[in-house]
Computed example of a mutant assay.
Amino acid sequence: MTNPDDTLLYKKKHNITINDIQHSLYYYFDYDERSFDINMPFQHFHSFYELMILISPQAYHLVEGIPYSIRSGDIVLLRPSVLHRSEYQKGAPSKRLIIGFLYPPSLWGMPETYQKLFEPFYSPLPIFRFPSKQQQLINEKLNRIYRYSFQDEEPELKSLIVHGMFVEFLYTLRQLAPFNTYTNEPLKDEASQKIYTIANFIHNHYSEELTLDSLSREFYISPYYLSHQFKDVTGYTLTQYIQMTRIRNVQYLLLNTKKKISELAEECGFTSFSQFNRIFQKYCSQSPSEFRKDGGGNSLPTIL
């Protein structure tokens, strides 16, 4: 007999929203599909926690420049500020569930307790894949929320119940973390694998001086070859990729700190403030101060 929780329940364009991102307790469940045609051009970040579960057969998820091959049932866990991008396959649209959530630092006076629930989001490996028994437990917790979301309930009470159910899910995920069987499949193309390794290095060293020559020396590769291969694999020149990675990190800091803009520019690897302003305007179509003032405005990406 088939268990109803063997699969994750899904209805296209169904969503569950509790509060908005301006509130300290926030949830957004997005049951939808995406296609190859609307793959994001560059990695983006969120100021909240995000969880993505693929329901379709296969896709890729880039996290800090590293491509991870994911299949149906895999869970991608992203803590705030991590640069990432989903890459869906050509053909039929891919079904997925994305959950964004944010808790206030002192929720109910138990910040340390809640922080324990977030431990899987800080794992060195951001993808979780479970054996069928454990996957069924995961689906069971999420399907409870899905079914409950269709009930006619007072908004305040509904928010509390969904929150309670999701805390149970986070606890279950934390308990099952040791059963994670995911191992990333290395790219068959060794040249591409090398380029993605360099991209990840950029994400981890963007605050340092990075040039074509310095990266060539670091990875024992000719400048000419690196320049051409990097554009072929990522779709960006090396300079563009470095600049966009730095700008994305500045954006996050602009929205989540009160430091001076000049300090943030320096922290993120810009040695010239005038150059920083020019590059920020180029990629964001507004100044850093305008970006901070309107809370990111239209420059912040939507959930994909």
Rank of each mutant, 00 (worst) to 15 (best):
L9T: 02
L176Q: 07
K133Y: 12
L176F: 00
Y146H: 08
I221F: 06
L97A: 04
P80R: 03
Y27R: 03
E87N: 04
F280E: 00
D20L: 08
L160R: 15
D6M: 07
L77N: 07
L25C: 11
F118N: 06
P223N: 06
Q193T: 11
L83H: 08
G100R: 05
K11A: 11
E190T: 15
S69I: 12
L107P: 02
I18N: 05
L8Y: 04
F45L: 06
F169T: 03
E267V: 12
Y182Q: 02
L102P: 04
I66H: 13
D232M: 14
F169Y: 09
I279N: 06
E140K: 15
S227F: 08
R71C: 10
P178W: 09
P288V: 02
F42M: 09
E168V: 08
S94Y: 01
E154K: 14
R96M: 11
Q229P: 07
V76G: 12
T271K: 15
P120I: 02
I247A: 02
A199G: 01
S272Q: 05
I127A: 08
Y103K: 10
I247M: 05
H46E: 04
L264G: 07
F150P: 05
C284K: 12
Y10V: 06
T271L: 12
Q135S: 11
A265R: 06
D37E: 15
I138E: 06
R292P: 09
T7A: 13
E185H: 10
D232W: 13
L300I: 09
G109H: 07
S299I: 01
Y252F: 13
S24F: 10
S24A: 15
T181A: 11
P126S: 04
L212V: 10
E33C: 03
D32N: 13
G65E: 03
F48L: 10
I75N: 03
I99H: 03
P288D: 01
I75Y: 08
H23Q: 15
H163M: 07
M1N: 15
F48I: 00
Q240L: 04
D294G: 01
Y26P: 07
Y241Q: 01
L173C: 05
D37V: 14
